[in-house]
Each structure stands twice: as structure tokens, then as C-alpha cells.
Amino acid sequence: MGKLIKAEFRKILTTKLWWGLLIVALLVAGGWAGLLSSAFDGIAEEIQRSDLTQRAGIDLADISFSVVFLARAINIATIFPMLFGGLAIASELGRKTITTSFLTAPNRTMLLGAKAITYVIWGAIYGVAITLAATLGIVIGTGGDHLVGVTTWLSTAAAGLLSCVLWTLLGLGVGALIGSPVGTVIVLLVYGLAIGPLSDLVLTGFAGGNANLAGALPNGAANGLTGSTAADTLAAEIEANAGGLSVLPGDLVERFQDTARLAAGGLGSYGLLASAAIFFGWAMLFFALGVVRTRARDIT
């Protein structure tokens, strides 16, 4: 297995796709975070007006709600590790290099296992890079005034990392299932940029902003993973900083979490653990389907 993983790393590093996608991912993550957080005044006021902050008597400056933009920027940028994973097998099928890859591996399942491990590592590399770029974007965007607290940042970064890894794996499965690089890129982009966000919006609209089916779909669950982390940590910070009330009413905290999750791009999503579990399930499902399809494929 180690030999195959080494070969996969060499495959990636001897072509330019990895850094081509990475550079764009960094620009998107950094740019998006910077733009959002510099335009943050409007949203900040809204949060300041919310019942929870009013009654808790919290000064916004104490709260690291830039985390919402961090989460959102990471969400958007996950498209790139998803595409990177999508091309892992699809481009080998497209360029027919899969023939030699199959001939030099003990069997197809081991090759796919090695690819999965390699791309999980690369998903994590993308995740770290994207999180750092998004953080930099926020530092620049807010002029350093509203930085994210260390704990909050760490948990959001961890969620972003997991999200990137799972998107990569999901993309890999979809690519193996479809088999053509162009088809894979189109399907992943159309879902990631159009169908996913739109269906989240529509379904959440019908559900009156509550958690719903959208949160159970891959895009919604993935957004929920980072969005809920941001929302939960924000709520926790607010509770900790609450000066006005010793115990905040549960429904108020919940409503605030929903608002924050929405702001972080997690439309209609469930809580952190549920979102993580659902998205993990989707990633595994597509990866497994990809394995089954690849094992059955005749390479002619």
C-alpha cells in the first residue's frame, strides 16, 4: 500500500493541477473572507439588535463573529478540493493512464484504497491552506479589529479541514462513478455552485428557516459542518460573556444559533455533529459507489 501511495503522490506532483487549483482556492477563500468581513457592519448591527445580545448585554467587540465569514469563505473554497478529488480517477480514465495503474497494482481495490488515503492527505493540505487564506482575508478585511478567538478559530479550522477532506473523497467517488473528467467537473460544479445552494435556499424557504431536508443533502450537510461550528462557538462565547443575565433563555440561544448558521452559509442545516455524520455518510456512499463501479469497469 505504501508503494501505491508513493506512486499516487508522484502522479500528483509531476503535473500542475494540484497547485493550479490550490492557487485559485486560496484566492477565492482569502478574497471572499476579506470582502465579507469588510462589509461586516450591516450584519454586525443586525446581530447587535438581536434579542439575545440585547438581553445579555453583550458588547459585540467581545464576540468573534468574524468566524461566520471564516466559515462561509471555507465553504465556498471547498469546491476546489472537491474538483481535485473528482479528477483523481476520472482523469486517469480519460487519459487511459488507468491501464498502467491497474497493471502495476496488486488489484483495483488496493489502488483505490491508496488513492483514497493520498487524497485524504491532499484534502487536508487544501483544508489547511484554505483556512489560512480565509483567516488572512479576515485579518485584512476587518483591519485586525475583529479577529476570531483562538478556540473558536481552532474548532472552525478543524471543521473546515474535515469538510475539505470529505469533499475530496466525495469528489473522488463521483469521478470514479462518472468516469469522464469533463463530465465529472461539470456535474460537480453544477451541483456545488447551482443545484446545491439553490435547493438549500428553496427548501429552507419552505421550511421557514428551520433545519430541513436541505441539511440532509451533501451540500447542506457540508455547509452545516462549518456553519454549525461557527454558530455553536459564537453562542458559547455569547453565553460566556453574558453580563445582563446569569442564564440565557434556551430558545433565544437556539434562535441565535439558527441566525448565525444561516449567516455562515449553513442554510437549513442540522447541528454540528449531525451535519458531520450526514456529510461523512454522503462522502462514504459516493466513494463506495465509485469503488464498485471501478472494480466492474472493463478497460478496453
Binding site: 506512486a7 508522484r10 502522479k11 509531476t14 500542475k16 487511459k96 498502467t100 495503474s101 502495476t104 497494482a105
Partner: peptide
């Protein structure tokens, strides 16, 4: 109909599979 990645050099192509 055996494939080579068009951007990969001959040596790099062989190094990939030597590793495998």
C-alpha cells in the same frame, strides 16, 4: 491505446510506476 499524461516527462512517467 495505452495512455501517458501528455504533460508528464518520460522519466517522471516511469518514476510514478517504479514507485508503484
Amino acid at each position: 491505446n495505452e495512455g501517458f499524461h501528455p504533460k508528464r516527462t518520460a522519466r517522471n512517467h516511469l518514476k510514478v510506476y517504479a514507485a508503484a
